[in-house]
Nucleic acid binder design. Structure first.
Lengths: 208, 208
DNA sequence: GGGCAAACATACACGAATGTATGGATAATT
DNA sequence: AATTATCCATACATTCGTGTATGTTTGCCC
């Protein structure tokens, strides 16, 4: 095959990643062969083996393609886009939860990626490190939540007798739960409508 | 090989299940071969293929061996072991959460099984049905929580302006989150001590 | 503009795991 | 006590996917 332009090269790389994401989400990582990814991307296994060492690295690329920019955007949404402290910290926490779930449910790439990470892959061996790093990332998010709740407490938005750190841990566990719920098979009555209600109720429980 | 006694037969079946559980939790379902399970169980692949059709059925057996009796025990713990309504519904909810994660963290078989279900298997194809049935099961648990919170409301244990159904959904998402946290790689500061604290705070948030 | 390596397609070799077929010894059944 | 089906070990066939080796063309750099 002939050599491609740099932009063409990057395009086939992206085609491979997106084809892999769709196939991973449908059949699971285990049951998708590189041949299927290649066919879905309109290339051959030769192209895949030139861009990636093996299937695990494709999975890492799929994850980094969505999870990383998403977490960054969410982080500075929590920090407050203007400077550091907002005038409505509790509201920005709720907004943070809403936009996160909105991304997960409505953006196909994000949804498929989270679907893969939650249900369609095994965290084993070399890929088990991924879990550890994810936990670290989200642990940082918990700290952001703590800071936000502390700011909310100083503004008098929280009910009395509540500990910001405890609220943050509770919200974090809550977030993990609703993400798993919204990504999983939708057997709860109406997934797109109940989750926002749950978020509102979750925040309302803290409001003083 | 010679024919075994019925009790011996059931014993080898249990040996296979337990060997499979350990291997699944360690290397993941994908990377464990039937040969490894057989070796860990002290038998050959012939025994496995006599008891189970394939690896998926072993996984189902591993799941049913722990998840089913656990959920049953938890259910009648929520219902109240004596009749239906307890004198302290909110306390029994908290106790329910405590015993659940106590099982998950301290009982090796339960912990390994949940570890497999959360991180070491892919819900794909025929096994994807398992997820759906699990969701249905836990949806029933959410209804039990709603009833318990309603009982707590009628006893005046809850703070004013709270909706039992909303509290139940929140607690359910919280439960999923902390189970995932306690089963996953322990990067949160101290897993065995923080989780009970989180549960206490979670319940304290509802108390009126 | 000439050399060189990029960017793949094609073809092949290989192992590894699965499923099955067979055999044999004995517990259960009558 | 004879028979049968159970319970499992052993051995074999087979497929499937991976990894690699090779070839070919052309964009890029000096």
């Amino acid at each position: 095959m002939a050599r491609k332009t740099k932009t063409e090269t990057e395009l086939t790389r992206r085609l491979i990643i997106e084809a892999a994401r769709r196939n991973f989400a449908e059949r699971g990582v285990r049951h998708t062969t590189l041949e299927q990814i290649a066919e879905a991307a309109g290339v051959t296994r030769g192209a895949i083996y030139w861009h990636f060492a093996n299937k695990s690295e494709i999975l890492l690329a799929v994850r980094d393609d969505v999870a990383m920019p998403l977490l960054e955007r969410l982080e500075n949404l929590l920090m407050g886009s203007d400077g550091d402290g907002r005038e409505d910290p509790l509201g920005s926490i709720e907004e943070f939860l809403h936009t996160h779930i909105d991304r997960v449910t409505n953006d196909p790439a994000t949804r498929q990626t989270f679907e893969i990470m939650f249900f369609k892959c095994e965290y084993t061996g070399e890929f088990g490190e991924t879990l550890r790093t994810m936990v670290c990332k989200t642990h940082g998010m918990e700290e952001r939540l703590t800071a936000a709740y502390r700011a909310a407490a100083s503004k008098g938005q929280l009910r009395l007798g509540t500990d910001p750190a405890a609220l943050a841990r509770d919200t974090y566990a809550f977030l993990v739960g609703i993400v798993r719920l919204s990504v999983g098979p939708g057997n709860l009555t109406s997934p797109e409508t109940t989750i926002p209600v749950m978020i509102r109720d979750h925040i309302a429980l803290r409001r003083g």
